[in-house]
């Protein structure tokens, strides 16, 4: 593998909870996704590209709340969770471009990436698949008694899927250590998307509605839910109210949401933290701009390497089918 560690955000960077580290972490996810959007527009990324711009506080906050070893699993809108788990951004960008150095060696694509050595279990293209697979990761932790808690991220629409309700049946019955994080990015039609935190009520599964645009709120709620599960009390649903600034995917700009792009609303998680940092005198505006420039350079390095990278060898076609 040609990936160099200098391209990696590094896992420690995503575990530190201080304001500056948190700012860097969220800004890194945003710049990465912005660049991915550009790469898609340039035709370097095929198929889909579901960006999570606006939702950075959730991935970073839950990673900060979780213990090392707690498994994460997500949908196709998962690069934030993957990068926050410490995946090498060069490998992620190379996968987006379908290159041999990609995280899935070019065979997965934007929605199928896995990093089990970092406790990240995908990357699932079927809506709500991660709800039941994540319940299985939690089942394994309970089976072994290893004290790990699974964090399964779902979109608001995935909470409507039958297998989410089926998963709740089992999670409740066996008091499985799992936190279901519903990233409610609030489609404009408002249809059936309220009170997702209450979806577990019939199963006596506690739910909480959280400001998903506030890193501290996410981290605090995540810590409570993870502690609850680790103490053997079973599952929790955290509904994170958030905003996705872009369409459902870059192939489908989401005009149904009432406009392709809207101005970032006031509580942008990164702008909010940035203001707090400056106000508290932890860093100057100029220093934060330098941080941004460093991050942009790292992302550009990953993007340029991906653009230049070689496609998989033809012999790769028929490998990795069976072990």
């Amino acid at each position: 593998m040609a990936m160099q560690p200098h391209g990696g955000a590094g896992r420690a960077e995503f575990l530190a909870c201080d304001p500056l580290s948190s700012f860097r972490a969220m800004l890194f996810l945003r710049r990465f996704e912005e660049r991915a959007g550009q790469m898609f527009a340039m035709g370097l990324i095929g198929g889909f590209c579901h960006l999570s711009i606006g939702q950075e506080a959730i991935a970073v906050g839950m990673r900060q709340a979780a213990h090392p070893g707690d498994p994460f699993i997500a949908s196709y809108r998962m690069r934030g969770h993957l990068l926050a788990s410490g995946a090498d951004p060069r490998a992620v960008m190379a996968e987006l471009a379908g290159r041999r150095d990609g995280l899935s060696r070019g065979k997965g694509g934007s929605i199928h990436m896995f990093a089990p050595e970092l406790d990240f279990f995908g990357g699932h293209g079927i809506v709500a698949a991660q709800a039941s697979i994540g319940t299985g990761l939690a089942f394994a932790s309970a089976y072994r008694g290893d004290g790990k808690v699974c964090v399964a991220f779902l979109g608001d629409a995935a909470a409507d899927q039958g297998q989410f309700a089926e998963s709740l049946v089992m999670a409740q019955r066996w008091a499985l250590p799992i936190v279901y994080v519903i990233e409610n990015n609030q489609p404009r039609d408002g249809w059936n998307r309220l009170a997702l935190a209450d979806r577990g009520a019939a199963f006596r599964i506690p739910g909480e509605e959280i400001d998903g645009m506030c890193l501290a709120s996410v981290r605090d709620a995540g810590t409570r839910a993870l502690d609850w599960a680790r103490a053997g009390h079973g599952p929790t649903i955290l509904e994170m109210r958030t905003e996705r600034y872009r369409g459902h995917s870059e192939a489908e700009p989401g005009k149904y949401r009432g406009g392709e792009k809207k101005a970032a609303p006031a509580p942008d998680p990164i702008a909010r933290l940035r203001a707090e940092i400056v106000e508290a005198g932890l860093a100057s505006d100029a220093e934060l701009r330098r941080v941004d420039a460093e991050i942009r350079a790292r992302v550009a390095d990953a993007a340029e390497a991906a653009a230049r990278g070689a496609e998989p060898a033809a012999a790769e076609l028929m490998t990795d089918i069976l072990l």
């Binding site: 994540g134 299985g136 297998q163 089992m170």
Partner: peptide
């Protein structure tokens, strides 16, 4: 003994296998 939720318990088995069971 599983509840009658074939879709999700098949998914659960995938997660358990991912985790090494």
């Amino acid at each position: 003994d599983a509840p009658i939720v074939e879709h999700a318990f098949a998914g659960l088995s995938v997660g358990a296998a991912f985790a090494g069971l």
